[in-house]
Design a protein around this nucleic acid. Structure first.
Length: 421
DNA sequence: AAAGAGATCAACCGCCTGGTG
DNA sequence: ACACCAGGCGGTTGATCTCTT
């Protein structure tokens, strides 16, 4: 309307107007939208090179902090801006000023882009609030949410609390510890779903969670991640843990990589509570050769037996084959034979030998007695539930392990495992 | 039913490593 | 070469649950 007062050239007017409109677009999108209504939207390129549009809102807690007059001002000016440019466009059309129509077109596009972006943010806010309300309707937050809904209804806007980009004050930075609340879980999950994993200190800072980055990372990896499996460790998983641990030791995260959905923490807990308990009851160190042999010659074969019997005759038939590998034997879990522990001792401790010793297990479901015996030379041999126990190396240590008492302990433990599974 | 013991597991702590300036 | 930081990892703790007496 007033541009001709400052410049005669249409080109200059065009450039200045478009630059100012772009500045206005940027300010509304990145500043006033965030401050006044707690919404933001942007575009980013993910690792696969795909273009992704993000529409984000604040968490529900910050809802109360939004000033109603601010949001009212924001939404009205957002729409009035587009209406004004539409009117200018009509004027230009009536006056047949096609060149000014171009200016109006650019500015109107920017205004509409902001309207679309913030409208989508509003939908996201609505979804988040509804999802949270359905999860915690009975909780203490229900009253807060109800007031939030009433506020939203009144305002007809879904500006929610969002994650301030500005650094939090010192008093806000007091770190919270201890168990995570459902609300914190929701906030962290929503944030990671939007922004992706990584940059955990930023996650902790920007999400409004008064937690450390480490705490956020741990909670996500061990609990909130969609891939995380819950429930008892299966027989196959137990077998894998025993085998991989015998190869790698306490490399929990490395072991966890071979158990989909299981976390290193879970495996570590399993080891400490179940495996170390066995060692304690056998009165030997968990890292001792005695205990490793106990695992190798009794526990692992026993697990294989249980898996075979639980997976039916198919596996049993397979296990009777002299060429059977663990990968064949244990059904759904595929174990790379190269990952299996190198059997200490002599050539008789080969993988096939170990598994073939298990092959006869199917004939005797449960052991009734242990028949200790001794082979020639240093060989300690016996059967436990049809499992041939044989060691030609370290026979002395084996003798100390394979007494009636220890075997009884171990056997009891394995029955306990049966009950658990 | 209550108390104590033991088991379980989520979460924290401190150290280590690799990347960056 | 060094310092700093983020993230990963293994060890440990403590709250809660479950079982036993």
């Amino acid at each position: 309307m007033l541009s001709t007062l400052f410049a005669d050239s249409f080109v200059i007017i065009f450039v200045i107007t478009v630059v100012l409109a772009a500045l206005d677009f940027w300010v509304v999108k990145n500043v006033s939208g965030r401050i006044l209504v707690g919404l933001r939207w942007w575009n980013e390129i993910n690792e696969q090179g795909e273009s992704i549009w993000r529409f984000e809102c604040l968490d529900h807690e910050s809802l109360a902090r939004i000033n109603q007059k601010d949001s009212w001002l924001f939404w009205w000016t957002l729409y009035l801006n587009a209406v004004a440019w539409t009117i200018f466009g009509i004027f230009s059309l009536v006056r047949l000023e096609v060149d000014y129509l171009l200016v109006v077109g650019v500015c109107l596009s920017l205004a509409i882009a902001n309207i679309i972006g913030f409208t989508k943010c509003r939908k996201d806010a609505k979804n988040k609030i509804q999802a949270f309300a359905s999860r915690t309707i009975a909780s203490r937050f229900s009253s807060t949410l109800q007031s939030a809904f009433s506020l939203v209804s009144e305002m007809n806007v879904y500006e929610t609390g969002f994650i301030s980009e500005t650094p939090q004050s010192e008093e806000d930075m007091d770190v919270k510890k201890g168990p995570w609340t459902e609300e914190e879980d929701f906030t962290l999950k929503a944030y990671v779903n939007i922004h992706g994993e990584g940059r955990w200190n930023s996650v902790a800072r920007l999400s409004g969670l008064k937690r450390t980055g480490k705490s956020c990372r741990l909670r996500w990896l061990n609990y909130l991640r969609p891939e995380v499996r819950r429930g008892n460790i299966s027989l196959q998983e137990q077998l894998l843990i025993l085998q991989l641990h015998s190869q790698w030791g306490n490399r929990w995260s490395k072991i966890a990589q071979h158990l989909p959905g299981r976390t290193d923490n879970e495996i570590k807990n399993y080891w400490r509570t179940r495996v170390q308990k066995q060692a304690k009851q056998l009165k030997c160190d968990v890292n001792s050769k005695q205990f490793r042999d106990a695992m190798r010659y009794v526990w692992i074969p026993r697990l294989v037996e249980q898996i075979c019997s639980s997976s039916g005759s198919h596996s049993a038939q397979q296990s009777s084959s002299t060429t059977t590998t663990y990968a064949d034997t244990i059904g759904s879990v595929r174990v790379d034979p190269r990952l299996l522990p190198e059997l200490s001792g002599t050539s008789s401790d080969s993988l096939d030998a170990q598994v073939s010793s298990v092959s006869d297990l199917t004939n005797s479901k449960y052991p009734n007695s242990l028949q200790n015996g001794s082979g020639s030379g240093n060989t300690i041999a016996g059967t436990w539930g049809g499992v041939e126990i044989e060691a030609t190396d370290g026979g002395d240590s084996m003798e100390s392990v394979w007494n009636e008492e220890n075997i009884w302990f171990l056997r009891q433990q394995l029955y306990d495992d049966d009950d658990l599974n």
